[in-house]
Structures are given as C-alpha cells and as structure tokens.
C-alpha cells in the first residue's frame, strides 16, 4: 500500500513536469499567435494577455505582401516535383544496389553514402555555377532537379536497407514466370517498398519545405519565391513592427500546422521508421 502511494505521487509529479515541458514547447508559437492579432502598441503594454480586440489587419497586410497564395503554390509545386523525382530515381537505384552483390555495386553505394556527410557549404558555389551553365537556375523545376540530386543519397540508403529485409523468393518466381526487369520493378517490387517510400516522402518533404539557402541562391524571380523566401524578404522590411512580422511568420507556419494536425500519426511514424532503419 505504501509503495503504491509513493508511486502515485511519483506519477503525478512526472505528469506535472511533462505538462510544463509541453507548455514550454508550445509557448513560443502560442505567444506569437496571440500577439499577431494585436496592434503594435498593445504588444508593449501586456505581451502575455489575449488581445483586447482581435484584429485581422496584420494578416490582411501579410497576405497581400507575401503574395501568399502564389508562394504557397510555388512551394507545393516544388516539393511535389522533388519528391516525385527522388522516389523514382532512388527506389530504382536503392533496390538494385541491394540486390546486386558485385564490387561495382559496393563502390557505387559507397560513393552515394559518403556524400551524406558533405556540408552544403562545401558545394554551394560550384552548385550555383553548374546550375547556371545548365540553365536550370531560376526555375522551380530546375530547383526540384537539384533537390533530387542532393536528396537521392539518403533515399537510396533507406531503400537499400529496406530491400535487404525483403525475401527474394517473390522476385525469383516472377522472373521465372518471364517478367522482365522493368515490369518486375514497377509491378512487384515498387509496391512492396511502399512503407519506406512513405518515410522518404515525409522526411524529404520536411527538408525541402523548410530549406532556405538553396532557394535563396537559385530563385531570382519574385513570382517564383517559396513561402520561406517571401517571409524572409519581408522580415527585413518590417523589423520594428512585431505584430505585423508575427502575422507573416504565422502565415508561413500555417500550412505546416494544418498538415501536422491531420497527418501527425503518419509523420511521427515516418520519422521514427527512417531513424531506426538508418
């Protein structure tokens, strides 16, 4: 009985601690949301209180100035194209690398893997130069191709690891039935890779959506800005008017928040799978 009491006490303590920790985690976002509905003057009187009058003015301005729908659309387009490319080229390569036991396959795999440690800053200028020479710079599709190049090593690594745990029998049977390599891959193998594909889509979507430096270097046209770029560009302009800035920041976060609320189960699972498999 005594033991049980102390255990209840312990659990309560832990629960309180966790509630505080969770509040701490969310507080920056909550404070930002709260104050984004205030006038700039009200921020200076009481930052912790709810707005006396909920005003959407800041959001209207932010919506117009960030060219919100266009940037949102650009970002969705960029992320979709990149994911599409990454999944196709990496599933093919990752699968075949795992299934081929030759020296060549080891070398190719090794070259892919080592690059995962190269800091982006080491390839930055060369990348800008090459993209300009190949005329992929300044276009969202061009940026997507670059993301495929940079993102495929990690995806290949994950596909490689996943394929190793799939029994070969099904493929062998299909080959005996006269399937060629291509149909074998599209009809039989790719569907089996679905769980890891989901993980790869989630991890890369997070990365590309939140990437800043590469779009900054590659996209020159304002109409092609991603959400993050138009946010950053406005930040410099308004650096004294916090309520306006916060509205811009919250707008930039909004799609992420919505997606997370509805998909959090898959996202957390995807991240968790990705981590364990690497």
């Amino acid at each position: 009985m005594k033991r049980k009491l102390s255990s209840i006490f312990f659990i309560t303590l832990l629960t309180i601690f966790m509630i505080i920790a969770a509040l701490f985690t969310l507080s920056p976002i909550l404070l930002a949301v709260m104050n984004s509905f205030k006038s700039n003057g009200e921020i200076y009187t009481n930052i912790l209180s709810l707005p006396t009058k909920w005003s959407f003015d800041n959001y209207v301005t932010a919506f117009k100035n960030t060219n919100y729908l266009q940037s949102l659309f650009n970002t969705i387009w960029l992320v979709s194209l990149s994911l599409f490319g990454i999944v196709i080229v990496s599933s093919m390569a990752g699968y075949k690398l795992a299934r081929t036991k030759t020296k060549l396959s080891k070398y190719i795999f090794g070259i892919f893997v080592i690059s995962m440690l190269i800091p982006f800053h080491s390839i930055m200028i060369g990348l800008v130069k090459v993209s300009h020479d190949l005329h992929v710079q300044g276009h969202l599709w061009g940026l997507a191709i670059i993301y495929v190049g940079i993102g495929s090593p990690m995806a290949i690594f994950l596909y490689h690891g996943f394929t190793k745990n799939i029994p070969r029998e099904i493929e062998e049977a299909a080959l005996i039935d006269g399937c060629n390599q291509f149909t074998l891959f599209t009809k039989i193998v790719f569907p089996m890779l679905k769980p890891i594909t989901a993980t790869i889509v989630i991890l890369n979507a997070l990365w590309i959506w939140n990437d800043f430096l590469l779009p900054l270097l590659m996209i020159t046209d304002k109409d092609k800005y991603t959400l993050l770029l138009s946010t950053k560009m406005l930040f410099g302009q308004y650096n004294s008017d916090w309520s306006k800035i916060l509205a811009i920041l919250i707008l930039a976060l909004l799609p992420v928040i919505i997606v997370y609320v509805f998909m959090q189960k898959y996202i957390v699972k995807g991240v968790s799978d990705g981590a364990i498999k690497s």
């Binding site: 196709i88 390569a93 190269i118 990348l127 090459v130 190049g149 940079i150 495929s152 290949i156």
Partner: peptide, 18 residues
Amino acid sequence: LFCLPAFLLYSIFVLYPA
C-alpha cells in the same frame, strides 16, 4: 541502368561541385 538517373543527377549537383 537502374542507378543511372540517380547517379547522373547526383554527380552533376553534388559530386562535381564538391
């Protein structure tokens, strides 16, 4: 054949700049 698309893009946009 299977690795070519990935390797090509990877070589152009990572390996070559590196």
